[in-house]
Design a protein around this nucleic acid. Sequence first.
DNA 1: GATGAATGAGGATTCATTCAT
DNA 2: AATGAATGAATCCTCATTCAT
Lengths: 229, 229, 229, 229
Amino acid sequence: MPPARKRKPAAGLKSRAAPKPAARPPRARKIEPEARRQAILKAALAVFAERGFEAARLDDVAARAGVAKGTLYLYFEHKEALFEALIRTAVSPVMEQFGKLAAAPNLPPLQAIEAFFALFQNEVLGTERKLLLRLIIAEGPRFPAIAEMYHREVVVRGIGLMRALAERAARQGAFATNGAARYPQLIVAPLLMAVIWDGLFSKIDPLDVGGLLRAHREVLIGKPQKGVS
Amino acid sequence: MPPARKRKPAAGLKSRAAPKPAARPPRARKIEPEARRQAILKAALAVFAERGFEAARLDDVAARAGVAKGTLYLYFEHKEALFEALIRTAVSPVMEQFGKLAAAPNLPPLQAIEAFFALFQNEVLGTERKLLLRLIIAEGPRFPAIAEMYHREVVVRGIGLMRALAERAARQGAFATNGAARYPQLIVAPLLMAVIWDGLFSKIDPLDVGGLLRAHREVLIGKPQKGVS
Amino acid sequence: MPPARKRKPAAGLKSRAAPKPAARPPRARKIEPEARRQAILKAALAVFAERGFEAARLDDVAARAGVAKGTLYLYFEHKEALFEALIRTAVSPVMEQFGKLAAAPNLPPLQAIEAFFALFQNEVLGTERKLLLRLIIAEGPRFPAIAEMYHREVVVRGIGLMRALAERAARQGAFATNGAARYPQLIVAPLLMAVIWDGLFSKIDPLDVGGLLRAHREVLIGKPQKGVS
Amino acid sequence: MPPARKRKPAAGLKSRAAPKPAARPPRARKIEPEARRQAILKAALAVFAERGFEAARLDDVAARAGVAKGTLYLYFEHKEALFEALIRTAVSPVMEQFGKLAAAPNLPPLQAIEAFFALFQNEVLGTERKLLLRLIIAEGPRFPAIAEMYHREVVVRGIGLMRALAERAARQGAFATNGAARYPQLIVAPLLMAVIWDGLFSKIDPLDVGGLLRAHREVLIGKPQKGVS
DNA sequence: GATGAATGAGGATTCATTCAT
DNA sequence: AATGAATGAATCCTCATTCAT
């Protein structure tokens, strides 16, 4: 989805355009517009994450993306539009991963949980994606559209997944209670905690996320785990 | 007639004044400096929480506090100093509450947990203090001094309290595992989740925090709770 | 619709603009960056000279240079940087003139003195450069870097020139004493006096600089001058 | 001349009030108002001299004078009024000294010159009064009233004195030419030079004022001075 | 399409001046 | 008279956005 070329028609957020641009057949021009767009988004994630939406300077985004400042406006209407695109773009891949987990409903719940935690550690906490999550937490309150999108795209699905999983686990006796089935947020909460802890205290008091999640699993299961570390 | 700061009383510039006209008492004096300071801090909490540190305008803080812009600088050196004072000030009272819980070490752990959750619901989630927590989460990464202070004053103590509690509970068999004793963050994580959820989704999908915490308790205990609510 | 810098195009605030309306060419572009830089420096000289460093308003400089306020910052980091550039820039051309005098060391000293005085009258007192000198005198004490630069670039060289000249004159008997050779400042002092007098009293009691300098020459020579003027 | 108690009637400078308050019979109250006034003026001289009129902060003046900021306004209408009073006040004593010189018209001109230079060295260059002179030079252009006053009170009289002296010297053959008689500024110019040099270069290249003035005398006289140093 | 110089509204901060005590 | 907290206009500087090339 190349440039925008609209003179701020009314302020966006509404234009809930195509679900995904879906990689247009490349025609090898100067520099693939899509690549440029990606470069900008990547730069934007770094800059927005480091400084927050307001303090982020588009100058920095442009410099980091290796484009001119004006170029940003060929791809995004506003700073705000860039920010929202950034979130939207980065959120999708996570969903795909979710899809994989959901696609294996016959996986024993404990293994599924384990897989989910691992996925989170590797694909979120271990990557720039944790910045994204942090950004949503920090800026979401000022960007209802983003919060709404995130809720719809990620939270609802994630909760659904977790609930199914927890219900299965509770039914099979793998979880000692159905508390997590009733409030699947409980499964995710420590992950959130890990992200926030990382953002605030990683320098002064780093958290052993592996240990945290192992302990979390024990609590969910309701009894000490033997075998696994 | 030489230069000297002309007050240019002619010319437009009609008072870019207050979004809330709020009939400003012309020259409110003798309002107990401390009260004024509190008013500023209160206003600052509201404004900073609503917009974030960078986007917050001191004009708004002043207007909201019912003082002139310059007055802020009689009480705080900077925007940043105001922000930090805000956090510091608001953090202490929470500590006192913590103190009360800690002062009752012979309280049965389950009751202590329950009390703690209730305290959090009433004194944090139910008040403006949740804004504070949200601010720390959102802005902490850019304010190491604040993160550090919060860690020292709140997190370390809180974790200590929770750990003692969880250990007692584990020893007495009240908790099915010692997971929470090893990672007391697990006890607090759902509270964090509640605050963040509230900030992001309260409008579109409010969370039943009471239910969440009841379920959380069940999970911690490792078996369904009868009786209680 | 979230926050984001609202351009508030409604509401008053009618352009606190230019003291000199001067039909501003809307978006003057491609005006040779160097020319623009010069325009800014020229405007800055006028404004700084009229009001002094502190009282000078960059708004005025911008208006006078026919650029937007922000444009100044594309060319100069600070108000102070602009000020220093201003001094530096304006100082060099004077040096070139000095060079010419120095390049004619065989010129009879009296003629050299005469040429020097004429140069000063035409190139300093008769132009905006006298403002520069006045600025250095007035602001130099607060700008050590500028004083140092001026000393190094102008004073040391100027003194050197004058000393060589005065020594020659003394040796040849053209000057009755070697006082000026020992303190070449004596040759220059009346020029300084002229600049200061001009700045303070030109309106109420203008000084005949030509007469002053003729008399000065007589004194230096040690006997009445016949012939010349 | 105690307080002012007028609400900025029209901006002053006109109120060319009493020539001198003339020490009112002290009634030993709290703190002699006149003493307070003097303290303020003294503080003001220091602060204005160090920073210039615009940059000088009345807070600093007040602090230095040991009074509250508001108190300044009991004694002076404006910052500007304070500045002008400062100049006026400090100028008078110099005039008295002048008087003494003028009162000895039978003193041999060379001795009178010498006395004058000594007076300047001791009473101006050697004291805070040089700051005053510097202030007048630097700020005078923006304060026509001050320039005018200074011209009237100091310059005209000084020039008159110098002229009389130079004429006598020329007539008696003590001066080789009547150049200085025609432009008595020539006598004073090196003094000015000394003040300015001191302000700009005292740190990096101090000037031997004694030597300068001796050389100056030689030049004026038109032949080397034996005897004196 | 891309560029980046130019624009100018906006916001933090300062400080002369006022005025209730 | 003296105080100093309060005021708010003024000013520097930033940075999102525009637009001529």
